[in-house]
Amino acid sequence: MQDGHEDGRDSSRLSRRMVLQATSGAVALSAVGSARASEGEGEARGARIDRRCPEATIEPSHGHCAGASLEGCADDHPVTIDLQEAVAETLSGRYPDVGSLLDDDYKPYFDTLAGDGGYSHWLSPEHIGDGTLLDPDRPESVLVDNESWRPIGVMFVATVDGDPVSPPPVVYDATADVTYEDGVSPAVPESETGDDGESPDRCSPWHYHAGLPSRFAWWYYRKVYEGDYEDGAVQLPCRTPCLLHVWTVDHPESVYAHDAPPPEYRDRDPADEASFETDADPGEDVLGWDVLPDEATPDLLPGEFSVLGP
């Protein structure tokens, strides 16, 4: 995958006509950013979701990916410690603030449908498209606390050239004697889920999202930042690719927890400065679309869409 176009056009600049042509009714533009469906429209929408995406839900939801296993994961396991330290080194050395993410062409996403939970996702088209998985030096997404404007972890995305990888590689497997550095996926059928494949020796905490907010977020990223509106893939995906979090701040559940750490666990000194041109200040202003420079802000923001179907 490439960010932008060979003819020099910026893929973050979409016209409304392009989006409407691409989505074919799956997503529409709304002057207020949301639309209320009539009871009949809601029933029809639910029927469409059931037919094409039986796992899909309107509310946020997630499940375990093929080959997933949380039973073998432990925060004090040497491989977990090594992976978390490697991620922390990448964040402190290369991505200590939002300006460094912008400089490396990471693309921001602030959740609109479900609320952002106080943190934002910054996605790298280069790393998502480079064919490497679970590489702490090249995280596909960096997670940034919107109060302190500092990274608090990463999210690995299991795709190659934008296509989902299933099953994704393990973090470690004692029986197979492999770690994330080996890039080995568990030998399980693609249809197998973590519920059936738990192993006390394997740590592979990959999950996917089937809820509408995350499905829309992945659709938005592909359409706006990668220019997929020019291709034929126009519908919202039934679920996201497999995802894996590694938090570098303390988390009461796990280094690999699905949900973000509570605000009190990510109470950090704000970034010394914004590190990009803005009138806002870390620690005083909340990081969001309104404080970013124009060149980092797409013409069409997530709140300008109304999701009408799967």
Rank of each mutant, 00 (worst) to 15 (best):
Y109H: 15
E126Q: 10
I81E: 10
V98K: 15
D97M: 08
P125G: 04
D103E: 04
E89A: 07
D103C: 02
H127W: 05
P96L: 03
Y106G: 12
R94C: 06
E85S: 11
V87E: 04
L101N: 14
D97T: 10
T90L: 14
W122L: 04
Y109D: 00
S124M: 09
K107H: 13
P108H: 02
Y95V: 14
E85P: 09
D105L: 05
E126P: 02
D97R: 07
L123T: 08
T112E: 06
T90R: 14
F110C: 00
P108G: 09
T112D: 13
S100T: 13
G99T: 11
H121N: 15
I128A: 13
A88Y: 10
P96K: 07
W122D: 01
L113N: 01
Y95F: 15
L102Q: 04
G93C: 11
Y119M: 03
L123C: 06
S100L: 07
A88R: 08
G99V: 04
Q84L: 10
P78L: 03
Q84H: 13
D104I: 13
I128R: 11
P78S: 03
H127L: 06
I128T: 08
G118E: 00
H121Y: 07
D82T: 13
S92R: 14
A114C: 09
A86H: 14
S100H: 09
L83Y: 05
L83P: 07
G118D: 00
G118R: 00
